[in-house]
Nucleic acid binder design. Structure first.
Lengths: 302, 302
DNA sequence: TGGAGTGATATCTCTAAGCGTATGGAGCGC
DNA sequence: GCGCTCCATACGCTTAGAGATATCACTCCA
């Protein structure tokens, strides 16, 4: 790539003159006097090395060299104008692309309203939404394969990633409707001591898993996890078939399944945090835009 | 078409930096110090209104806005460089297009050697060659549908068109071989007084026609034109079949036809001029190039 | 903790571009 | 022949841009 030889203002003058074929008219279209236009053209011709216009009294027309240069000049000018406009659109965040990872349990609470308000405000933005559990989200953020993460129990501090709590929610017991404890409006954790448990694998989100486990331990028992499932949807299905019970964030109440009951637990102290995560140094203007949308638009309550 | 907002030198710096992603390296590739490069980029970012690079210690990368602008900048730069190079090629006359009209009788003398030497010198030039009689050539030159004319008996002066004599040639008598006069090495025009004549229509080239007619008148008779043909080739064919005799420029000797004899005429005073014609104000550099080739390369003798 | 590396900033200089006004000069038509 | 149109030229002014050097701020690493 060599250094540019022809300045754009002169090319602009050239294109306009090529359209008008009249120095006076072209000059007024350019908003300048006629002599400066003559100079511009002359300078351009000096740089090209050949005449671009043939001036005959009465009429003026392009030389072959000028005809050859014209399309390149026009393309450069229009291309740059369009590119600049597009870059400004992207820079302002009116258009662009945002890749969002989200935990499946948020598909029914945080995500819908967030997407609704964001789409409303930035209809031209491409949103790439993909479901991911917490740990892969953190990796994907670092690898720049997603720009925004919606996850549970974020790490407290991180040098590269920023976190902000979207909501905190209590836990509920997930029981088969036929389970005797399901008859109560609220259950105590220790009532589940003898039940087999269905949970997400610890690797999917260690902090959440540990939080659930410590709920049980605080109630005086270690949960007997007889079954794992990577999605809450599946957990509920397994509970329905009577394979066990579970403790889960309140969000999953939204999974309405006949034969599954959700019950408040008591005491109701422990809460799980849902957070949004992003790269602190991300230059994408859509990231702050999304965070703003999240701030102003509280998620649907379960 | 609006006035350009982004100067090319800054876009050049932008593209190079986008390739290097390192201010120091990019600056040295540009042949400048690092601080001026920082300034260039900063100015460009100011004009765009948004950051184009995100500077993090250790690595620097494009923002979405920068990624959006990059292809436009690159296209503008390369497009202009190519367009400029092409315009210079055309301006110098190394490449381009030249439309040439020629009289049929020159297809065997002037034209072949001219095309040979011109093609040799300017192999990249497109030559559009078309056969035209004299009068249409002059019209085509004025209408700019041809750039060069090769014709007979050009008008003496013209405000718009230039003429230069390529060669002058004597007239020859065209006779059937069986004609008694064909036995002589040279014929006197008055020997043809009683023969029917085959000639080109006067409209094709009035000066040439008039010249031939006046040859006869000078010999004391008015030619009895019994047959017209628009090409010399056809004239010869008609002469062969015995339809008449003709007087023609010596060039047509090249039309070798059994049964047709060409004989020098005496006295051998009258000559016909072959000339090249062009628009005086033509800006195509190939026109002077062709004239130069014509000057340096005398046509084949018949 | 100090030095290397990297980029930003401050300041200065100089040139070339860009524009305006005034003027010159060639064609063209009345 | 005179005036008009149209483009070129001359001259002066102003400013943006591009460059250099010197220096600062930050990070990272030994």
């Amino acid at each position: 790539m060599e250094r540019p030889e022809l300045p754009l203002p002169q090319l602009h003058a050239f294109v306009v003159l090529a359209e008008e074929l009249h120095f006076g008219h072209a000059a007024s279209r350019l908003g300048i006097a006629q002599p400066p236009l003559s100079q511009q053209i002359r300078r351009l011709e000096d740089k090209v090395g050949y005449a671009l216009f043939s001036r005959e009294p009465g009429r003026i027309c392009l030389t072959p060299a000028g005809r050859q240069l014209l399309p390149a000049a026009r393309h450069a000018l229009t291309g740059l104008a369009e590119g600049l406009a597009a870059a400004r659109e992207v820079g302002s965040g009116r258009v662009g692309r945002l890749r969002i990872g989200f935990a499946a349990s948020l598909a029914l609470t945080v995500l819908p309203s967030l997407l609704r308000t964001f789409r409303e405000r930035f209809p031209a933005v491409d949103l790439d939404i993909q479901e991911m559990t917490t740990t892969p989200q953190l990796a994907a953020l670092r690898e720049r394969t997603i720009d925004i993460g919606l996850l549970r129990e974020p790490p407290a501090h991180d040098t590269d990633l920023g976190f902000e709590t979207v909501l905190t929610e209590p836990f509920v017991a997930v029981l088969p409707s036929s389970h005797p404890v399901a008859a109560q409006r609220a259950v105590r954790v220790e009532q589940l001591a003898d039940c087999p448990f269905v949970l997400l694998p610890r690797a999917v989100g260690p902090p959440l898993y540990d939080q659930i486990a410590s709920l049980c331990i605080a109630a005086g028992f270690t949960p007997q996890v007889t079954q794992h499932a990577v999605e809450w949807q599946t957990v509920c299905a397994l509970v329905e078939t009577g394979l066990g019970v579970s403790l889960a964030p309140e969000s999953i109440r939204r999974i309405r399944l006949k034969g599954v009951a959700f019950r408040r637990i008591e005491p109701n102290a422990a809460r799980t945090r849902v957070a949004v995560a992003w790269r602190k140094n991300d230059s994408n203007p859509l990231v702050p835009h999304l965070l703003a949308a999240l701030d102003q638009d509280p998620p649907d309550r379960p």
